[in-house]
Simulated assay, not measured.
Amino acid sequence: MEIINFYKFVEGNPLFRQMSVDDVLFTAYDCPLEGSPVDYSTEKNYFCYVFVGGGRWKTPTDEYILKAGDAAFLKKGVHRVFKILNGDFCALLIFMPDEFISSVLRNETNLFINETLEEQTDSVIPLALNQSLIHYFNSLMGYFSQASPPSKSLLKVKFKELIVNIATSGHNPLATKCFKEIAASGKKSLKLVMEENFIFNLKLKDFAKLSNRSLASFNRDFVKTYRTTPGKWLKGKRLDYAKYLLETTDLNISEITIESGFENTSHFIRTFRERFHSAPLAFKKQRLIKV
């Protein structure tokens, strides 16, 4: 499946109302979600607050439905999105680089605490909205209706406010954990990057970039971590995931090819047969007979 660079598509696009300051992009994304599913990549984390319509975001471990009045924090990387409601999709998007989030937490000494939570954060983190956050998103949307845009300094304060609000409210522990992980180290967890993005047909240089590493450093750290090469690991991980989908879903072979990150159906069938000594369709039929 083709991966669309969502951030570059939105940035500077005259179709969308937008403002920016210090590499933070704030935009009203107002258009239909064409096709289903669509894989979107972004080199920056972003907040999404839905005003109209809705969508379904799928990760290797879960699915998240966002409808009008819902919000989420989405890590930089690739996200698979399905349209779920008729009509247009309108959302407020705030793209933030790791550096901005880190600077806010580092300057707020009471927030930068090395604590651990047992929960593992996914690439999509739904936000629990209190009245303060709801008012915040609506107040940002109001800037687009003003005769003149707000000052850069005011926008910067507003963007910092969002991070501090979430990190101090106590209502969003997973988002807070994610913020602190971003601030704690220049290099992202390699395991987390791979587990969040293996279903997407990315090149190794893309995985390296997501983990904030050079390609050489990525390959070196990968072998240390997994005791195998990235190519072998990705093939095995995608095959295991495809097997899981065959066993637990009603998806057809073409859909499973896309869902598990293979380039095309013929490549998937050939690779699956080599690993499991059975074609995917035959494997699925055998499972149904046993059940």
Rank of each mutant, 00 (worst) to 15 (best):
N107D: 12
F73P: 02
V78L: 09
F73K: 01
W57E: 06
R80S: 08
Q146N: 08
N130R: 09
V124Q: 00
W57D: 04
E115D: 12
C90R: 08
E99M: 04
I65D: 05
K152G: 04
G69F: 07
P150T: 03
Q131L: 11
L154N: 06
P149W: 03
F89W: 15
N107I: 12
S102Q: 15
L155D: 07
K75Y: 05
L155T: 08
T59A: 09
L74R: 02
N114F: 08
L111D: 05
N130Q: 08
F112I: 11
R106V: 04
P97G: 00
T121Y: 03
F137S: 01
C90L: 13
M96G: 01
T116A: 14
T61L: 11
A68S: 15
E118M: 08
K75D: 03
Y143N: 01
L133S: 02
L127E: 10
S139G: 04
F112T: 07
Y64L: 04
V104K: 04
D62Y: 11
F112S: 07
L129C: 09
D62W: 07
Y143Q: 01
N114V: 08
N114G: 03
N110A: 10
G142L: 02
E63C: 06
Y143L: 09
K76I: 05
A68N: 04
D70V: 01
A72P: 14
S103C: 07
T109W: 05
E115Y: 11
F144L: 04
K83N: 13
T61F: 14
E99C: 02
F137N: 00
V81Y: 07
Q146C: 09
L127Y: 11
L92D: 00
S139F: 03
S102E: 14
A71R: 00
N130T: 13
S148Q: 15
E108W: 04
P150M: 00
S103H: 09
T116R: 12
F95M: 04
V78G: 06
S139Y: 02
D62G: 07
P126M: 14
E119W: 05
D62C: 10
S103A: 15
M96W: 00
A72Y: 14
T61A: 13
Y136R: 06
A91H: 02
I65P: 01
Q131A: 07
A128C: 10
L140E: 01
V104I: 15
A91C: 12
H79L: 12
F89M: 07
T116F: 14
E115W: 07
G87Q: 03
A147L: 13
S139M: 13
G142E: 06
P97R: 00
E108A: 12
L117I: 15
R80I: 05
D88W: 07
F95L: 06
E119H: 10
S148R: 15
S102H: 09
Q120N: 11
D98F: 12
A128Q: 13
T61D: 12
R80N: 06
P60C: 05
A68W: 01
T61V: 11
I94M: 10
P60N: 08
N110C: 06
L93F: 13
S102C: 13
A128W: 05
L155P: 03
S145Y: 12
H135D: 15
F89I: 04
L74W: 02
K58H: 03
P150G: 01
R106H: 13
L92N: 00
L92A: 03
V104P: 11
